[in-house]
């Protein structure tokens, strides 16, 4: 697994798909599940290829995404 990954707050997500559209590595997709508001939230299906670029975060209109990026050990 890549040490870069995203965490999506499934309850905040409204399934607009902008993160999926703008992900350069196409590691995101819609979940099969529905959240309590009836939206299908985005999920990271590809755990290997995230580069931690933050594009998904930047385009997310619901502040639902946190991006974790591998950093050098302190």
């Amino acid at each position: 697994m890549s040490k870069n990954f995203v965490k999506i707050d499934e309850e905040r997500c409204k399934g607009c798909g902008l993160c999926i559209n703008f992900c350069p590595k196409k590691v995101l997709s819609f979940s099969d599940k529905f959240n309590s508001k009836g939206y299908r939230p985005a999920q990271q299906h590809d755990l290997e290829n995230c580069i931690g670029c933050g594009f998904c975060y930047m385009m997310c209109p619901d502040a639902a995404i946190t991006v974790f990026k591998e950093t050098a050990e302190v």
Binding site: G54, M58, V67, F68, T71
Partner: peptide, 9 residues
Amino acid sequence: MEKATYKKP
């Protein structure tokens, strides 16, 4: 280690 580089302000 991983660090949250982009997170809700």
